[in-house]
Design a protein around this nucleic acid. Structure first.
Lengths: 169, 169
DNA sequence: TTGATATATATAGCCGAGCTATATATACTG
DNA sequence: CAGTATATATAGCTCGGCTATATATATCAA
């Protein structure tokens, strides 16, 4: 039974990579806490999956359900469920795919844009007090970190999708 | 039906705060995607709640179930469930609270430390390839961003706990 | 000391997100 | 046109999350 914080140095990793190693695990762990804090602090009745899905659609425009699943890093049946819920609330629309009768194009609706925007506003308003005193230099650091992280996470999503696609066979 | 990415400037917010506003929403959204990417890329059968809970216990040492719930930003009954699962796998231990027969102290077990460490290692190994080419300056930016974000998120958790505690009445 | 109130955890019961396995419908290809 | 591949849906499960409430113990006041 351990009562003290512990830090084990990763083994067999070059010294430089070791730091990156630690940062990556820190980022993942912190991300989980940020998500929980955001949903609780805003008392959001919606689930993160909703906003993640809408955000992907807003950012990339309409796409097939399968592609949406890949970009959101969920399995296709999971996305079928999520989209069903969003369609019911008119936050996304299904458009028949001209070229392929099996597929749909899923696009965010104007109502979806509205609720997503409102969520972002509420989120920011709720979290702002915790960061108001943040020096401008730190704000810039956060800006840079987000900007350099995001493209890699998005690329990572695509790569992970390919990977799991391969395994599916 | 909208097909183009849209960015609405927040209204009624001072110009300086507007940037921070955007960064906060970006951080929250990116966090959600990081979490999904991590669980999928590592093909982790465990859920993020497991690692979040174990990490809090490792960082802070044994504590009551209710406090653990507050620090993890989940409701108390949720934590009761999570802890039940962890106890069953011997990843945490219950210790009778000397001073209060209603309460337990929950502490991470050595087995729990092991699996948490292994998870971190696997995670880092999986994600490293996406970041190997990251310039050292960018690594430092990430390091700084994590370090300045984390204490505020943790404070935020405490604040949110107080808030919801007040509402409970 | 006892009765009222507060607090710590557990239980019940619900919903949504996530998964795998598989079905169905359409597309493609030899 | 047969056979295979692909896009989505369905079935059925688990877990995490919630609220409402029960239970047990503490605490405090009369």
């Amino acid at each position: 039974m351990l009562t003290e914080p512990i830090t084990l140095p990763p083994r067999g990793v070059p010294a430089e990579a070791a730091e990156l190693h630690d940062i990556l695990t820190d980022i993942v762990q912190l991300s989980g806490r940020v998500t929980r804090l955001a949903t609780r602090a805003t008392q959001d009745p919606e689930t993160p999956a909703t906003w993640r899905t809408l955000a992907v659609l807003q950012q990339h425009g309409p796409m097939r359900l399968g592609e949406l699943a890949r970009l959101s890093n969920v399995a296709q049946p999971t996305m079928t469920k999520i989209v069903a819920g969003l369609v019911e609330r008119d936050w996304v629309k299904r458009i028949a795919d001209q070229d392929d009768a099996r597929a749909w194009q899923i696009g965010i609706s104007s109502k979806g844009v509205t609720v997503l925007t409102e969520w972002r506003a509420k989120l920011a308003t709720t979290l702002l007090p915790m960061f108001e005193d943040l020096p401008d230099a730190d704000v810039q650091t956060l800006r840079k970190a987000v900007d350099l992280l995001r493209p890699r996470i998005e690329l990572g999503s695509a790569a992970a999708a390919l990977q799991s696609g391969k395994d599916d066979h």
